[in-house]
Structures are given as structure tokens and as C-alpha cells.
Amino acid sequence: MTLPTSGFTRQLVRQAIERDAWIVVRKSAAPVWEAAVPALGAYPRLVTGSNGRRLYLSPGNLGDAGYRSILEAVRVS
């Protein structure tokens, strides 16, 4: 079953890709998102958290490079 909000959310992800935005996904949800939006599979600005249950924006969860990239994007905006 596909909910209307699912289509809307997929569209938001596609728009984020088009504007070259950083996207952060929980590790456990990454395969689902890549299936729903195939462009995520090769998207260079996708950061996957290492904790499958919680998404902490920290170097320990996102990796040093991913964390620094997200932090810089927030500072610039």
C-alpha cells in the first residue's frame, strides 16, 4: 500500500537531489529509500548514519567526513 504522503516525500527527496542538498538517512532505512528513489544509490551527498535505530547528528554516527559536511552546510545556510 502506498500512501499519498509517500509520493510527496519521494518528490521532496528528488527535489533535494536536484538542488544538490545533503541528505541524511538512518542506516536501516537506506535500502528502502534507495529502492524508492533510485538516484540516491549514486548520490554523492547522501550520508548514512551508523546507528540503525536513532539518527544522531554526530561524528560517531555520521563519520567524521559526513558530520563535517552536514555541519558546514548548516553553517552556510
Rank of each mutant, 00 (worst) to 15 (best):
F8T: 15
R54H: 15
L57A: 05
N61V: 01
L12N: 11
L57F: 07
Y43M: 13
L12P: 09
A30W: 13
A42Q: 12
E18W: 04
S58K: 02
G60W: 04
P59V: 07
G63D: 05
R68P: 03
Y56A: 07
R19C: 08
A29M: 04
L46N: 10
A30M: 15
L71K: 07
S69T: 08
V76W: 03
R26A: 05
S6A: 15
R19D: 07
G52T: 10
R10M: 06
V74H: 00
I70D: 02
G60L: 05
K27D: 03
L46G: 13
R54A: 15
S6Q: 15
S58T: 05
Y67H: 02
W22S: 03
A42M: 13
M1P: 09
Q11H: 13
T48F: 04
V13K: 06
E34P: 05
E18I: 02
A35V: 10
F8D: 13
G49P: 09
G66V: 01
V24D: 02
P59I: 00
R53S: 12
A36D: 12
R54C: 14
Q11M: 06
S28A: 10
R10G: 03
R19I: 09
P59Y: 05
W33Y: 10
P59L: 06
T5G: 08
R26L: 07
Y56F: 11
L62M: 01
S69Y: 02
S28D: 15
F8M: 14
A73H: 01
I17H: 02
N61Y: 02
S28L: 14
P31L: 14
L3H: 14
L57W: 01
D64E: 10
W33E: 07
E72W: 03
R10E: 13
A36E: 07
D64M: 11
F8I: 13
V74R: 03
T5W: 12
L12I: 13
D20M: 05
R75V: 00
P59E: 02
V37E: 09
P59F: 02
G52M: 14
G49K: 01
L71D: 02
A65K: 10
L62F: 00
T48V: 15
A35F: 03
Y67G: 00
R45G: 02
T9A: 12
G41D: 13
L40N: 03
A30R: 14
V13G: 07
K27A: 10
L62D: 01
V74S: 00
V74E: 06
L71H: 01
D20A: 08
V74C: 05
G60V: 06
W22M: 08
Y43A: 11
L3D: 09
P31H: 14
V74A: 01
T2C: 11
V24H: 00
Y43S: 10
G41V: 08
K27G: 12
G7S: 15
